[in-house]
Design a protein around this nucleic acid. Structure first.
Length: 687
DNA sequence: TTAGGGTTAG
């Protein structure tokens, strides 16, 4: 190894050459020794070395090199500052950024806009908005990069609304946003589900010829995907002159999250035909998409394909696939997946346990979730959020609030998802004042800006408590365009509290926002029928016919032993069908004696003429619960799942069933869990 | 020389 012997007292010009050749072969030890043996390294040598260490994933070594220069009393050149600022950004170490910032200030370099911009960026990567703001405020001359860096700092640190306001301020200051600015501000609109601002920025991008930019367009695709405007997402995608893997992932996600599984999957196939190679995120999007759309077997198949293509499933993959273990048609197969996942990859304790507790909660067994959660040694924000959400869906608002308090005590910083969980817990448990108070504290005490989802939760809080006018006023005062979930919450409550006027207003908005969602038409139809407004109701039916919108068939299922049994309205396909109907007839007699009165309003909830003739007893949830009671096999709880919201009469009937039979019945509908016990339901009849 | 997009929990 004589050739590698170390020269001493290397002159700077030669040192740079030797240093570069050592870095090129990845010999960092030699590079360090060489650098140490240059008595007076010039600025280019210093910045080259620092940058190279950063790009090779050694930002902390890069920062140490800078510190050693300072210790020797060498005054760093501005190029060295830029290099070390980048290293700080990569390492994410706030203290180091502060030190570099102080050094630059002392040397009078903070008016150099390049250095200032690099420091704003570095502070942003360290999630230190105060630092970034200070550098920004101290600048006299700010360019487009300064503004872009600050606004994206806010967006990436969880302050999307602040990011948007910086973006707007920038325009007022006469600095024109460029494609980089636009692509980094779009995620703020997505995060806030702020379609209105998103569309304004889309318009700006069109007017300024930015729609050829792949970053801008991918941002737009994601924006429309997040705001549930799948058609607009597709329109942007179709107009793109060049598409890369990120644009494809965006449009795939748009279809999957909007329940258009088949279209998503066919695009996935088309993607490879178009010569775009799927990456890790593509596979995660597809696997998540399969799971979200109930395609368990396909999700497992995709996991296998992902590995065959040489990709290693990561945390996100595992979190999405693990619930397959219990949703699977066949419990045994679920267990196999579980074992397979654990054998194959050393899954981190935190990720896998969180997935496990979420899976138990989604399967209706909150006690098992609680046990898992209590046993966790370390709990991160995702774990806390999952447990809060689990309680919210089961209607345990008080416990969700309690957990939120404990989370704050353990010094885990709540994020936007935390508040969605806590607020929905409040709405499902009629905790109005508590909910409003928490909503008001979000920005003030927790530095989390409320997004459209949080506003919708508050609408839901007022609505479920029967304070419909307050809910309506609140919607009108929202700082962003109200989403379908805000109007949907109001419409749902109008049915419970029989408010026809507000129902018409909300339904009109919903028909504009999601013209193809059958649920909205059905809800309004039912409200009109209950109010005996027959001619208006029939107009809705005609509207649906004209638009070719058909009601999604209701379907309930439950697991008995290793099998999942599925029921639709008037189902006779079950082998024990006769037994179920006879049992249900007997049960209804007993229930009537206990005070049950069938609510015939709900006979009319199905709009098809044939279905209208079916009696209430045929509803899928009643059939499934009856089948569950017949097959209890010593269990004390029947767990039934339904794809739509539970019908009002069924809700009432199942309360009586739980009393007459003396059994716990858990029903998960499309919105939440209902725990029926002793003639009562955990939702306090706010179904 | 400095700044940019997609995948988990809602």
């Amino acid at each position: 190894m004589a050739a590698l012997s170390l020269p001493t007292n290397i002159p700077s010009h030669l040192g740079l050459r030797l240093l570069r050749s050592a870095l090129n072969v990845g010999d960092f030890k030699r590079a360090h020794q060489l650098f140490d043996n240059i008595p007076q390294p010039d600025p280019t040598t210093c910045s080259t070395f620092i940058s190279a260490l950063t790009t090779h994933g050694r930002p902390n070594e890069a920062i140490k090199v800078y510190a050693s220069l300072r210790a020797c009393g060498i005054k760093p050149h501005s190029s060295v500052f830029l290099a070390v600022a980048k290293a700080c950004a990569v390492s994410g170490d706030t203290l180091r950024v502060k030190e570099v910032h102080e050094d630059a200030t002392r040397l009078g370099l903070m008016s150099d806009v390049y250095i200032a911009n690099a420091l704003i960026h570095a502070y942003g990567k360290c999630k230190c908005v105060e630092g970034a703001r200070r550098v920004f405020d101290d600048l006299v001359v700010r360019d487009v990069v300064t503004w872009t860096s600050l606004s994206s700092c806010y967006v990436n640190c969880g302050f999307p609304r602040k990011g948007l306001s910086v973006f707007r301020q920038m325009g007022l200051d006469g600095v024109k946003p460029n494609p980089v600015t636009v692509s980094s501000i779009l995620p703020a609109c997505s995060e806030l589900k702020d379609l209105k601002s998103g569309k304004e920025i889309h318009g700006f991008a069109v007017r300024h010829g930015m729609v050829e930019n792949v970053f801008v367009c991918s941002g737009l695709v994601s924006l429309y995907a997040k705001c549930l405007s799948v058609r607009e997402a597709r329109a942007v995608f179709d107009l793109m002159p060049h598409r890369d893997v990120v644009s494809w992932n965006g449009v795939l996600t748009a279809y999957f999250t909007n329940k258009e599984y088949e279209k998503g999957l066919s695009l996935f196939t088309q993607m490879s035909r178009d010569g775009v190679k799927a990456d890790e995120a593509t596979w995660n999007a597809v696997i998540g998409g399969c799971m979200e759309n109930g395609r368990i077997e396909e999700a497992v198949e995709m996991l296998r394909k992902m590995q065959n293509m040489g990709f290693k499933p990561n945390e996100i993959t595992i979190s999405s696939i693990l619930p397959a273990c219990s949703f699977s048609e066949n419990l045994r197969m679920g267990k196999e997946i579980h074992g397979y996942v654990f054998r194959q990859w050393k899954v981190g304790d935190l990720t896998s346990t969180t997935a496990l507790l979420y899976m138990y909660a989604k399967c209706g067994d909150l006690n098992l979730s609680r046990n898992v959660f209590n046993m966790m040694r370390r709990k991160d924000v995702v774990a806390w959020n999952t447990m809060i959400i689990a309680n919210a869906m089961h209607g345990n608002g008080k416990e969700a609030l309690f957990l939120f308090g404990k989370m704050l005590q353990s010094r885990v910083k709540p994020n936007s998802v935390t508040f969605t969980g806590v607020l929905s817990g409040c709405s499902h448990s009629r905790l109005v004042e508590e909910g409003i108070q928490i909503f008001n504290s979000m920005g003030k005490d927790h530095l989390v800006e409320p997004d459209a989802n949080h506003y919708s939760c508050v609408v839901d809080i007022y609505s479920r408590a029967g304070r419909l006018n307050e809910a309506y006023k609140f919607i009108q005062r929202m700082p962003m365009e109200p989403t379908a979930s805000a109007w949907g919450a109001l419409l749902g409550a109008c049915r419970v509290y029989k408010n026809v006027e507000l129902a018409k207003i909300s339904a009109k908005k919903l028909f504009e926002i999601e013209p193809n969602n059958p649920g909205n038409y059905v809800s309004l139809f039912n409200i009109l029928v209950t109010a005996k407004l027959w001619s208006e109701a029939s107009k809705i039916r005609i509207l649906m016919k004209e638009k070719g919108i058909t009601k999604l068939p209701g379907c309930s299922w439950l697991q008995v032993g290793n099998r999942v049994h599925t029921f639709v309205v008037g189902d006779k396909s079950n082998m024990e069908s006769d037994k179920i109907y006879n049992f249900l007839d007997e049960l209804v007699e007993k229930m009537k004696m206990a005070g049950y009165k069938p609510d015939t309003d709900y006979v009319l909830q199905d709009i098809d003429q044939e279905e209208k003739a079916e009696s209430l007893c045929n509803h899928s949830e009643k059939l499934a619960v009856a089948f569950g009671i017949l097959n209890l096999n010593g269990q004390s709880t029947v767990r039934v799942f339904k794809n739509l919201r539970i019908c009002g009469d069924c809700h009432n009937a199942i309360k009586y069933m739980s009393k007459v039979v003396g059994v716990m019945i858990v029903v998960r509908d499309s919105l939440r869990f209902h725990h029926f016990k002793n003639g009562n339901c955990s939702c306090n009849d706010l179904w």
